[in-house]
């Protein structure tokens, strides 16, 4: 399964005068786990947003899973996001007044129809079977992040994006989350692209690229 899932050529994103992402050529294979490292403002989040269909490139070519993201309409982008991509946020971004299950069901609702049983199963799978009816405020950071993961994978995405998923977590929680992701990936066979500051976290990936000032400066394969 070494077919190409993501291909970008000369991918650029400018915010006014500021060039957040300089022309970037990147290929990611199906099922690969790619870590992106770089300090703040290096353009890694910009890249992630472009791949996740949250933002549009200023210039260049970007193709994910055979879909040319530049030509998609707004609603086409929305469809791409709900059917193809799952995103894990650093801030979790759970809806505060909905319970864990309801937060997951919301993702199901936007995708197709809500299914509570399936949402429960998904939460049990991330080890939160006992906290189904709790609101995000009543959960710890690690638990919140696991809800966020459950939500991200509920619609069986082919691409899972993580924007510093462990940025706010302590060492123990980080480990739990990373192990969970690894397990899920083994089951579901999705591609992971993860932005991180943490070398330890990046090491979970098959390959790590380093961005600096919008330019890819280094690429490391696992075991290098």
């Amino acid at each position: 399964m070494m077919d190409v899932l993501i291909e970008t050529r000369g991918l650029t994103r400018n915010y006014g005068e500021i060039c957040a992402l300089k022309p970037l050529d990147l290929r990611v294979n199906n099922g690969e786990w790619l870590s992106i490292m770089g300090h703040s403002g290096s353009g890694k989040s910009t890249l992630l947003n472009l791949l996740g269909g949250l933002d549009r490139p200023s210039d260049g070519f970007i193709r994910v899973g055979g879909e040319d993201l530049r030509v998609l309409s707004e609603d086409g982008m929305a469809r791409y996001r709900r059917e193809f991509v799952g995103i894990i946020f650093q801030q979790h971004h759970l809806i505060p007044y909905l319970t864990a299950v309801e937060n997951i069901m919301m993702a199901q609702y936007f995708h197709s129809v809500p299914d509570e049983a399936e949402a429960r199963t998904a939460l049990e799978r991330v080890g939160l079977g006992h906290r189904l009816k709790n609101r995000p405020g009543e959960l710890s950071g690690g638990e919140q992040q696991r809800v966020c993961i459950a939500r991200a994978i509920i619609n069986s995405p082919r691409l899972l994006l993580g924007d510093e998923p462990t940025g706010n977590l302590d060492h123990g929680s980080t480990r739990v989350v990373m192990e969970l992701l690894s397990e899920l990936r083994a089951e579901e066979q999705f591609t992971i692209i993860m932005v991180t500051h943490n070398h330890e976290v990046a090491a979970w990936g098959d390959r790590t690229i380093y961005l600096d000032d919008g330019v890819m400066v280094r690429e490391e394969l696992k075991g290098d």
Partner: peptide
Amino acid sequence: SPEIALMKAIGADSLQ
């Protein structure tokens, strides 16, 4: 707006 942005990020289209 964060909430709405989140809905959009997890794939809600304008109609939804």
